[in-house]
Amino acid sequence: MLGAIVGVGMPWWNRKPEERAQWVLEPLVGVGPLRFGMNPDQVASALDGAIAYISQGMGSGVGWGCYSDWGVTAVYGEDFGLVAVAIDAMDGPLVRLQDVELIARVPSEVRSDIHGLARREGASVRVNWSGDPEVAAWGVSMGAAQELGLSPEGYAQRQDTMITHALLVGPELAEDPYGSKPVIQWCDVRDREPNPGAWPVKAEQDRTHWDWTPLESIGPLRFGMDPQQVAAALNEVPAARQGRYPFGEPWEGPGEWMLHHDRFDIAGVTAHYSCGRGWPPTLGAVTVHGRTGPQVDFDGIRLIGMSVSAVDAALIQHLEDRERGLVIGCGGDLGPGGLNMYVRATRAGDTMVSEARFCQADWEDHG
């Protein structure tokens, strides 16, 4: 069932909340004008001829297309049929399931409403990979993203709040939405640390303090260390590590596995490595985790575990006062020019807290 359709084609910064499309979810059947099983042409027609500005595999069966004007991503199965619809937090349609509004709301409030509806309906609620509610009986898997706003000058700026988005799936994916092949092709979360649904933040007085020498070292870690030296400096075994086999010609075989990063949960940091075919991994960057990591200062600005908007504002003012350049990373992260440091944001339940990535001079950060 399709509710009011207004405001389509406008970016979020030009669209008022009341101008967003309003859709109704029919569990395991469809949402708004979209029905599971539609082919890409039918989806485009249902979206008033919308174009998938970003897509992959659309001509091979399993694939996906992002309809940016609608804030919707359509995911297709092997028979070219629509199997999942992802609704963007900032500019996707406002989706309602009975009396529960699912999109662009405070995550804990949506979670409470979903549990209440599930009790009335006799449905089971579980926690998905991101720590948000998932209900197989409805084909609903919730998530959350950082809210964005506009500065007085009209620029997009990060907020300290999280708002909800959702992945809505048909019956064939309902039991494991993010574990299904079509969804993995669109958004592979298998290497991400699963969240149990809690986001404890270490108190300031319980954090150690690390010194930072730009482009050279952070705390006990010096750029160029090998993984064994990093673990020894932290006196900790990695809780998790991620890497891949290099891409090569088929006759070359998979090659030697390349380490990308190690996560250290006690220290509250992730070590990122430079490596490639023929050279071993060396430390190229360190992310200090916002919820659990040590405190690090930049010219008196505390960077870790703070309000993201406050750190952004302090950093911008500091650099303007000194007529220094501001660098914006690919994920919207801010940093001082020439120092290869980026203030990042991480979720803490309904809010965001700041963290930071410190890099060596030749490290190219891609988020």
Rank of each mutant, 00 (worst) to 15 (best):
E147R: 15
V100L: 05
M352I: 01
L94R: 14
S68V: 12
Q42R: 11
C275A: 15
W138H: 10
S130R: 14
N340S: 07
W210N: 01
L319P: 09
L117S: 14
G243M: 06
D333S: 13
Q146E: 10
A271G: 10
M10F: 04
T292K: 06
F358G: 02
A50Y: 04
R20K: 15
E147F: 02
G7T: 09
A285I: 07
Y342R: 05
V24L: 10
G337S: 15
D206I: 00
T73M: 03
V106E: 12
L25C: 10
C330H: 02
P196S: 11
W12F: 15
R263H: 11
V237I: 11
Y76D: 00
G3Y: 09
S68C: 03
E364Y: 02
V269A: 13
M58H: 00
G335W: 01
A271Q: 06
L102E: 04
D132C: 15
D113T: 02
G268L: 05
W13F: 14
F223W: 04
I316H: 08
F36H: 05
L319D: 02
L315Q: 03
Q146I: 02
P171T: 03
A239G: 15
G278D: 11
V8Y: 04
T213G: 01
G3K: 07
P280I: 03
W70I: 04
Q98W: 11
C66P: 00
E193N: 05
R222L: 06
L148Q: 11
V24T: 15
A118I: 07
R105P: 03
L168S: 03
L148K: 09
Q146K: 07
A166L: 09
G143D: 13
S60W: 01
E256K: 13
V127E: 10
L94F: 00
A136M: 06
P280E: 14
G61Q: 01
H165Q: 12
T287Q: 08
A74Y: 01
W363Q: 03
D333F: 04
W251L: 11
E147A: 15
D48I: 00
G278T: 09
L82H: 04
